[in-house]
Write a protein that binds this DNA or RNA. Structure first.
Lengths: 158, 158
DNA sequence: TCGCGATTATTTAGGTTTCAATAATCGCAG
DNA sequence: CTGCGATTATTGAAACCTAAATAATCGCGA
């Protein structure tokens, strides 16, 4: 077996794991998307944005929001436009910085989100129902290692 | 603690795990996307399609391809159009069924993919470098449980 | 053989996401 | 206080993805 072939063989496990991670998340994600659409006529990105805001009552700047959601700023602008038009979030000027805007849930938005979040959580519990509490914990810890390693290697600018 | 609050508390672990799964895959996925763009001026969906074809030299029908890639048929049509225009894949009529087409890599496509795949695998190994071989195995098995449970519950039709 | 439901691929319209460019503002160095 | 690089949000162009409609073909049952 030459070096190149050995290299390949040695790394097959990582590749298999990665593909399985992708399969699992896509499987669950698609299920959640379709349920959000059927039950609440909304989309995952909209739900995500509201979920982020829910944790911070005073609101968040769009840059922070885009980092947390791991999407581009332009994307956040678009989703915010929609939710604002529906009265679920509002843009609030930031005192002392005329560039920035704080996005926050309106009372109506908070109410709507509460309903969705409750059901959403049940979907997740159901999706992960094949695991024991101990296995959930193990998975959580191992993925924590992955997350940490990925984030520390190459934070930005190779 | 009332029932609703308890319910919430009991299921917090699953939700946390789900969010972490999402974070990990998105983190890695985005890194791969940007590297595919920088290094090979291509995209993840195009890479994915070629990766599927690579495993089956005789080619695959578009329906099979769309199921494996977990995207819609129309999407596969679009990506195939691009790759075909670049001479990386070709559409081959199926003997005995004039509806179906076999998509397969051209020799040029196979060559291009081989180069990308080698580097791609290194990226994955690097991303998962924070784990021991044993941890990779554990993660793989646990995610296998998740995958199986999600797939068996509600295969289709509520 | 005929007809009809199912399968296969494509098209269409609409929404999502990214990247890059733009415009406004900030804050600091001089 | 002036200018200039950095930050903030938005916009525009292009790619991606979906769902639903369309068109061609298949294959089976009567």
């Amino acid at each position: 077996m030459d070096m190149e072939a050995r290299l390949h063989a040695d790394h097959g496990d990582e590749l298999r794991l990665w593909l399985r991670m992708l399969t699992c998340t896509q499987l669950i994600e698609q299920r959640i998307r379709s349920r959000l659409r059927e039950r609440f006529a909304t989309t995952l990105p909209r739900f995500d944005l509201m979920a982020q805001l829910e944790r911070v009552p005073e609101g968040m700047k769009m840059t922070v929001l885009s980092k947390r959601m791991m999407v581009t700023g332009g994307n956040v602008t678009g989703i915010t436009d929609q939710l604002e038009a529906e009265g679920l979030v509002q843009r609030v000027p930031v005192e002392g910085d005329r560039r920035a805007l704080l996005i926050r849930l309106t009372p109506a938005g908070r109410k709507v989100f509460a309903t969705m979040a409750l059901e959403h959580e049940q979907w997740i519990v159901q999706a992960l129902g094949g695991l024991s509490a101990r296995e959930v914990e193990t998975l959580y810890k191992l993925l924590g290692k992955v997350k940490q390693h990925v984030k520390q290697s190459e934070p930005e600018g190779a």
